[in-house]
Simulated scan of single mutants.
Amino acid sequence: MLKATQATLLAGVIAAGTLGTAVPANAGPHVAAKPVTATASRPIHPYKYKHVKYIGKKCGKKLASEARGRGPITLTLTHSASVSNTYSATIGVDIEGISAAVGFDVTKTHTKMMSGAYVVPRGKYGKLKAYPLYSMKSFDTYLKMGGYLGKGKAYKVIGFCYTHSAK
């Protein structure tokens, strides 16, 4: 549960990027307050990430490449494609914090080589499609001052999935 002072402090971080001044809790009256400010080189991130765990692999939905043809033919995909890591979360989050927690840059784009083949039977029209293959991690987001905010997932590109069909 957030106390009123924590909520006000958080609002100051999000809205203005400045906390104002800070004095240690156990400091006497002779200790001067120090200004605390967010800068481009030292942003203030009010979140922390816990319970990071691997949850499996998943084929993406964005088509990376496709080959089509009438059989008899061998469809082959040999292609270089740029695909990006990504993330999803139930709340607004800081990308650097998520990247540090899951162990990879969630915004990085990779160029991957792929090669796959499918033999289309005589008289059929075949398709061979490639999609990004992701390794997934889940995480929980908390305020550094306390309080659960929501869940998220991070997806790292590790290769490609292939699907084929013939009609």
Rank of each mutant, 00 (worst) to 15 (best):
T39D: 00
A33F: 02
K48A: 06
K153D: 12
R122N: 11
A154G: 06
A22E: 04
L149Q: 09
K124D: 00
K124T: 02
H110P: 13
T109Q: 15
T109R: 15
L63R: 11
F104L: 10
A166I: 04
V23R: 08
G103H: 10
Y155S: 08
T141S: 13
A67R: 06
A27W: 01
I158E: 07
Y148G: 07
F104I: 08
L75F: 01
A101Q: 01
T39R: 06
M136P: 01
I73M: 10
K129S: 04
Y155E: 07
Y131I: 01
G126I: 00
G28C: 08
Y54C: 09
S165P: 04
H164I: 03
G71V: 04
V106W: 09
G69C: 05
P35R: 09
P43S: 02
A15M: 05
T8N: 13
S41I: 10
F160A: 07
I95Y: 11
A16V: 08
T74Q: 12
T107D: 15
H45S: 13
T109D: 13
K112I: 15
L149F: 08
L149T: 08
Y155G: 00
K112L: 15
S138R: 06
E66T: 12
V119R: 12
K137C: 01
E96K: 15
A27D: 02
T90W: 12
L19A: 06
Y148S: 08
T109N: 14
S138L: 06
T21M: 02
S80G: 11
G116W: 09
I14C: 04
S65C: 12
L10G: 00
I95Q: 13
G97Q: 03
H110D: 14
S84Y: 08
S138E: 10
I55P: 07
Y134M: 05
V93M: 05
K34C: 11
